[in-house]
Design a protein around this nucleic acid. Structure first.
Lengths: 211, 211
DNA sequence: CGTGTTCCTGACCAATTGGTCAAACCTGAG
DNA sequence: CTCAGGTTTGACCAATTGGTCAGGAACACG
């Protein structure tokens, strides 16, 4: 029985190994496309051994998603209403881009889940996530009404940030197929590009002609 | 044997029915996650009947991808080097957004394929697609050197357009979970937002102070 | 009508799948 | 060393999967 909290160091190690292997397999094949044998093989364990630590395939997936959800939203949480609006948003963009580079598997796991209709995490999207987004949207709206940002829809602004940053993880195969160079330069180029893009669109226009 | 070109009207109709059903199933579950039984059931045909028209599961998938690739790139092809740069790019953005609204299943089919490493279409990405993108990147670069656009990396500009527009199809579940309204307003809002975003970032800055 | 071709199906198959289980194997505290 | 607990595995199972096949049903066309 998989104990709620890992007790022994063996449990800790194996659970970690399994989740790491499962992350790779689920993120590449989606839930239905992934097999326990694949995960077991990737983890260097036997299939019954997997099922000693997790009661079922979905349990592994759920554990992964749960772990991911807690850390995935941190960059957005860090956006500070007290800071300089444009710099705060740009910092958020760059943090998200950094996560796309650092944790592409996590990004793809998420992408797979959402593309398939988010069957397992819709409640968290409509709860935790929506709450956070609503809160930050209010912050952005306040910034706009203070004239510190160009007037844009805060929700779609956030969507565009998710889209443009996660794209570099989720669609990496396509990007690497198109971009001439094959190094990691694409992420640095992306940082420059997104920096320009969001600065340009968020810069408040010259104050209204009337004064 | 599935004849290369559909002959009878029955073939035409059934092949169409199958591909439509397969599009739905593949786009929601990915290739490995989709089953022939599911597709057959969705199409209202028996499984052996599917395999009368297509020799295998991958054949159906290949047919879908092939059909998609031909039309999916049309919006980009239409970008005209002779037109007004900003308007041309914006028209492209809106066409892509329109496709995300009109053909979300096609978008998700594509997304699934790329997220999983584009195993079946990497050659087309590195061939047809790359050629087209290279060509259009040159056009954009020319526009920039004529001072008609702000200087941005043309490749990443195109990536950002793909990301922001397809996001509304691929991640629709998330968007609908977050946005207050549930109608189709999100697409109109997106059009407004993207219009602002790309105009702001592409507008050439005031000519260099020196004159 | 008749008859050759196209279309369709139930029954079947081997391989793979998620999952079980009893028995064997470790491991660490006393 | 011991032995009770945690850990691991080979063998197994029922269900599902992609795919086959022989034959029947529907059609086209003279």
């Amino acid at each position: 029985m998989p104990l709620p909290t890992p007790r022994t160091r063996i449990q800790k190690k194996n659970i970690q190994t399994i989740m790491d292997a499962a992350l790779g397999v689920f993120s590449q094949n989606g839930f239905r496309g992934a097999t326990l044998d694949q995960i077991a093989s990737e983890a260097g364990l036997s299939k019954p051994n997997l099922l000693y630590y997790f009661p079922s395939k979905v349990a592994i997936h759920r554990a992964l998603i749960a772990e991911l959800m807690t850390t995935w939203l941190d960059p957005l949480r860090e956006m500070d209403a007290q800071g300089d609006p444009i710099e705060e948003i740009l910092a958020y963009v760059l943090r998200k881009l950094e996560m796309a580079r650092e944790f592409p598997r996590e990004s793809r796991l998420f992408a797979n889940e959402i593309v398939q209709g988010a069957p397992n995490i819709m409640d968290q999207i409509e709860g935790e996530l929506k709450t956070l987004v609503d809160e930050k949207a209010k912050v952005i709206t306040a910034w706009i009404s203070q004239g510190k940002l160009a007037p844009v829809d805060p929700y779609h602004l956030i969507f565009s940030i998710w889209a443009t940053t996660q794209h570099y993880a989720d669609f990496d195969a396509q990007i690497q197929g198109i971009l001439p160079d094959k190094g990691t330069a694409r992420f640095e180029e992306a940082a420059t590009f997104l920096n320009h893009m969001y600065r340009a669109m968020l810069r408040p226009q010259i104050a209204s002609a009337a004064h």
